[in-house]
Simulated assay, not measured.
Amino acid sequence: MDTITEPESERVVFVTEDGVPTGETGPKLASHHADTRLHLAFSCYVLRRSDQALLITQRALDKKVWPGVWTNSVCGHPAPDESLPDAVRRRARYEIGLPELDDLECVLPKYRYRTPPFNGIVENEFCPVFVAWVEEDPAPNPEEVGGWRWLSWPGYAQLLADDEADVSYWAKDQFEQLKDKKPFSALG
């Protein structure tokens, strides 16, 4: 598989409270701080067709934002003028080494969250949530992913409920909205 590189000049798209781009962008890393401005992002939950297990990933320990925490399959930011589905596919190739995502679908188009500070950084994102299906295992980029595993949906619910588990804020928050939506409601 060819390596996909991410530009150091990656930019985030600033948006209104309704997710409408303002026409302004900022450098990705420099835009995440204690007063992070609302910007466009996405989350994607990758399910394995054969057993409906969910791929969860642990963010690499040297990531600036939320290092070492377990989270959903892949997250990221669309580039200016890039569609969200294209951004999901690009990050899935780059971050978790999955070149093909089947049946990519947006299941929470208006999801928005703001985290409490974590190591001095606040996430503030208008973040549509996607689901996709694969059969193969990921081949993660070690600069992005420190670990990965497949979990049943009930196993994922248990992980999120464990107060001792180091899990991302957005994974816990999204779960509350996803658990009653298809396909997740049928994964019991």
Results as ranks from 00 to 15, higher is better:
residue 3 T to P: 04
residue 4 I to N: 02
residue 5 T to S: 11
residue 5 T to D: 05
residue 6 E to H: 03
residue 9 S to L: 01
residue 22 T to H: 08
residue 26 G to H: 13
residue 29 L to M: 15
residue 30 A to S: 15
residue 31 S to M: 08
residue 35 D to F: 13
residue 35 D to Q: 15
residue 37 R to T: 14
residue 38 L to T: 06
residue 39 H to S: 15
residue 40 L to W: 07
residue 41 A to F: 05
residue 41 A to P: 01
residue 42 F to A: 10
residue 47 L to N: 01
residue 54 L to H: 09
residue 56 I to C: 06
residue 58 Q to H: 04
residue 64 K to N: 11
residue 66 W to F: 10
residue 74 V to P: 05
residue 74 V to T: 04
residue 75 C to T: 10
residue 75 C to R: 04
residue 78 P to K: 11
residue 80 P to F: 07
residue 82 E to Q: 15
residue 83 S to A: 13
residue 84 L to N: 10
residue 88 V to S: 02
residue 88 V to I: 11
residue 89 R to M: 12
residue 92 A to S: 15
residue 96 I to N: 04
residue 96 I to V: 15
residue 96 I to H: 05
residue 99 P to F: 10
residue 100 E to A: 06
residue 102 D to S: 10
residue 103 D to S: 08
residue 104 L to E: 07
residue 104 L to D: 04
residue 104 L to R: 00
residue 104 L to K: 02
residue 105 E to G: 01
residue 105 E to C: 05
residue 106 C to L: 02
residue 111 Y to S: 11
residue 112 R to D: 08
residue 112 R to K: 13
residue 117 P to K: 00
residue 118 F to C: 04
residue 122 V to G: 02
residue 125 E to N: 12
residue 125 E to G: 05
residue 126 F to H: 07
residue 129 V to S: 09
residue 129 V to Q: 06
residue 136 E to L: 09
residue 138 P to D: 03
residue 139 A to N: 13
residue 139 A to R: 15
residue 141 N to S: 14
residue 144 E to N: 13
residue 147 G to F: 03
residue 148 W to K: 06
residue 149 R to P: 01
residue 152 S to C: 11
residue 154 P to N: 08
residue 154 P to D: 03
residue 157 A to H: 07
residue 158 Q to Y: 10
residue 160 L to R: 12
residue 163 D to Y: 00
residue 167 V to D: 01
residue 171 A to P: 03
residue 171 A to E: 07
residue 172 K to Q: 09
residue 178 L to G: 04
residue 179 K to Q: 12
residue 180 D to S: 14
residue 181 K to E: 13
residue 184 F to P: 09
residue 185 S to E: 07
residue 186 A to F: 04
